[in-house]
């Protein structure tokens, strides 16, 4: 009888601690209202992006008959804005912002035999979806470094197949390819904490950043990384602009 009481007491204590922890985390996320925004620009003449000949698969060739597809390794907008740059907080994050992956499900679509978007950023542990809009089968073959703890996979998606849902265990910039269409090439940018990807004009906004001092890193697949220090204080978004110089 005495034992049972003891057990009940311990259980109560555990419950109290758990509720407290939940409340605390809740408080932190409620506070993560801050934002970091800015623009990423490219300076200089953009490198030549070779055209892609998709004739090997008539479906792809037909889907792109009116456009001329080309590589997307460096995509510069009309105002010099650099697209597909991933921005994330590389230093200064702690606690809950790190431990709770985002709950939205980013989508990586295979459309007209290209990846949309070309770079898909996501949080560690965040579930993402690979979908196909094409009437030809693709295989999705991401190539992580096995030393990071991310496990490589390779699976096909025939036309009409439901989305493939996956997540990654460790932060890493992972190249993804379709071997059936060797020109298809994209990235899974897996980072810890809040992130953003630049749009066609090079603009971005990282949301849900709790107030504090941070280092923001901008990563571009061929141009490398740049960092900037920012302070997020509350109401107004902190600013961080980047400029990548061409060769």
């Amino acid at each position: 009888m005495k034992n049972l009481q003891k057990l009940a007491a311990v259980l109560m204590a555990v419950m109290v601690v758990l509720c407290g922890a939940l409340l605390l985390t809740h408080e932190v996320s409620a506070a993560s209202e801050g934002k970091i925004s800015g623009t990423v620009k490219y300076e200089g003449t953009p490198p030549h992006m070779r055209g892609i000949d998709m004739s090997k698969d008539p479906y792809c060739a037909k889907a792109n008959a009116s456009t001329s597809p080309h590589m997307e390794n460096v995509v510069v907008g009309s105002g010099g804005g650099l697209e597909n740059v991933v921005l994330y907080i590389s230093e200064g994050l702690s606690g809950a912002a790190l431990s709770q992956p985002a709950t939205n499900v980013p989508v990586f679509d295979q459309k007209n035999c290209e990846y949309t978007p070309h770079v898909l950023a996501m949080d560690v542990g965040q579930t993402f979806k690979v979908t196909t809009s094409d009437q030809t089968a693709h295989n999705i073959h991401p190539n992580p470094n096995p030393m990071t703890g991310n496990i490589p996979w390779n699976q096909s998606q025939p036309p009409g197949a439901p989305p493939v849902e996956k997540s990654w265990k460790a932060p890493e910039m992972i190249e993804v390819k379709c071997n059936i269409h060797p020109w298809m090439h994209g990235w899974f940018a897996v980072v810890k904490g809040p992130y953003a990807t630049t749009d066609a004009n090079g603009n971005y906004t990282i949301s849900n950043v709790p107030p504090g001092n941070y280092t923001v890193t901008a990563w571009q697949e061929t141009l490398g990384t740049q960092t900037a220090k920012v302070t997020v204080s509350g109401a107004a978004p902190a600013k961080a602009d980047f400029t990548f110089k061409g060769k």
Partner: peptide
């Protein structure tokens, strides 16, 4: 040659 064998073509 692997999973994409059926679609390994060129013109």
């Amino acid at each position: 040659c692997g999973l994409g064998h059926y679609n390994m073509k060129a013109y």
